[in-house]
């Protein structure tokens, strides 16, 4: 079932379930993401993410693929780099490649190491996009999400509830992009007119953490 293992760790099966839940969510919400992007960008975010994660399903989540944890994540990163395009391709591609590098060749990833891998991914996004919190980007969902995860784990919470809180923090961070004025990406061309719209990248990033929480809790 891809449940959390005893000793609070995730295995490749759980990560595969995460990616599958995320792919389904992105497909279901493709039109919505594209609408958000049309308001302040170029109207292709949902289409691009859906195309990328359909490729992830075909190439990486293939049942015959028995890649270890890091191989799985690297496969996702490379697939997204070569299929998504736009800004989201290099950003999400970098996220999964950095996560893979941090995770290393393991069968199971203990909770703190999962958090560290996610944090490495987020740092990769920050570097590649040269963005900072408050710029109305993916980071505004990813950073509060991963910071919450690390804090809750440090406080001794179990992984499922820490991830639930992380997903909620990412969603809150995503909603907080509504009044922000964009400073990066195509939305920044609008200046003040970008305020009043939710950032599509922050939205897909919130889905990413919500899907991880769902995959780990098994719900």
């Amino acid at each position: 079932m891809g449940r959390v293992m005893e000793g609070e760790a995730v295995d490749a099966a759980t990560l595969r379930r995460w990616l599958d839940v995320l792919a389904a969510r992105l497909s279901e919400r493709a039109d919505y993401l594209t609408q958000l992007d049309a308001a302040i960008g170029d109207g292709d975010h949902g289409i691009n993410m859906d195309r990328g994660f359909r490729a992830v399903r075909e190439r990486v989540l293939d049942p015959g693929n028995e890649a270890p944890l890091d191989g799985l994540l690297k496969g996702v990163g490379m697939t997204l780099l070569s299929t998504v395009g736009g800004a989201a391709g290099p950003l999400y591609g970098t996220f999964f490649l950095r996560m893979a590098a941090q995770a290393g060749a393991k069968d199971r990833l203990p909770a703190p190491e999962l958090a560290a891998a996610l944090a490495a991914g987020v740092e990769g996004v920050r570097q590649r996009g040269r963005a900072e919190p408050g710029d109305k980007t993916m980071l505004d969902a990813l950073l509060p999400g991963v910071e919450t995860l690390e804090r809750m784990l440090a406080e001794g919470r179990d992984l499922a509830s820490a991830l639930e809180a992380a997903a909620a923090a990412a969603e809150e961070g995503c909603r907080a992009t509504v009044p922000m004025v964009a400073r990066k990406g195509r939305a920044s061309y609008l200046g003040q007119r970008s305020a009043g719209h939710q950032d599509p990248g922050a939205t897909s990033s919130a889905y990413l953490l919500r899907a991880l929480a769902a995959a780990v809790s098994g719900s």
């Binding site: 109207g43 292709d44 691009n48 195309r51 780099l81 070569s82 299929t83 998504v84 395009g85």
Partner: peptide
């Protein structure tokens, strides 16, 4: 050429 209105990818 990328997808319509979408940057090409690094491998291309």
């Amino acid at each position: 050429p990328g997808a319509v209105f979408t940057s090409p990818t690094p491998d291309q």
